[in-house]
């Protein structure tokens, strides 16, 4: 049986995005079944506009250059790669309602669900991570 990896993305900065999507794509490349639950600021990571220019932590703006030099893929590239490899994205319905967001604000191919949708996936997970 496939390994299962359940990830909660609850923060919306560029560093958070790399932590989430690097682990998710690496897990998918290692034949794991992966789902990410995006909640609160974590929704930025799959927001059609916001994910193109996620903020760096204050005072660390110079690291932007380091990302380019290290030839690290962009977040939109990592997002489509993750989806292509079968990583499932679940956007938190409650947070979307609070923030006035609809499914159209997000990248294509996401699911919208509540906490129980994620918990149902996570209950059989071999690895659970929160970022």
């Amino acid at each position: 049986m496939k390994k299962r990896v359940a990830i909660i993305a609850a923060n919306g900065g560029l560093f958070d995005a790399y932590k989430v999507f690097n682990i998710a794509t690496a897990a998918a490349a290692t034949e794991a079944e992966v789902a990410i639950f995006f909640t609160f600021e974590g929704l930025n990571l799959i927001h059609k506009e916001a994910y193109k220019q996620l903020p760096l932590p204050e005072g660390k703006e110079q690291i932007q250059q380091g990302f380019a030099q290290a030839n690290v893929p962009s977040i939109p590239e990592l997002v489509s790669m993750a989806q292509e490899m079968g990583v499932k994205f679940i956007a938190c319905q409650m947070t979307m309602d609070v923030m006035g967001l609809t499914k159209e604000h997000f990248v294509d191919g996401i699911d919208v669900g509540g906490a129980v949708t994620f918990l149902d996936f996570a209950k059989d997970a071999d690895i659970t991570l929160t970022f």
Binding site: T25, A26, A29, A70, M85
Partner: peptide, 11 residues
């Protein structure tokens, strides 16, 4: 290429 690309390409 940087992590995680070598693994993705290998897979």
């Amino acid at each position: 290429l940087a992590c995680p690309m070598p693994i993705v390409r290998t897979k």
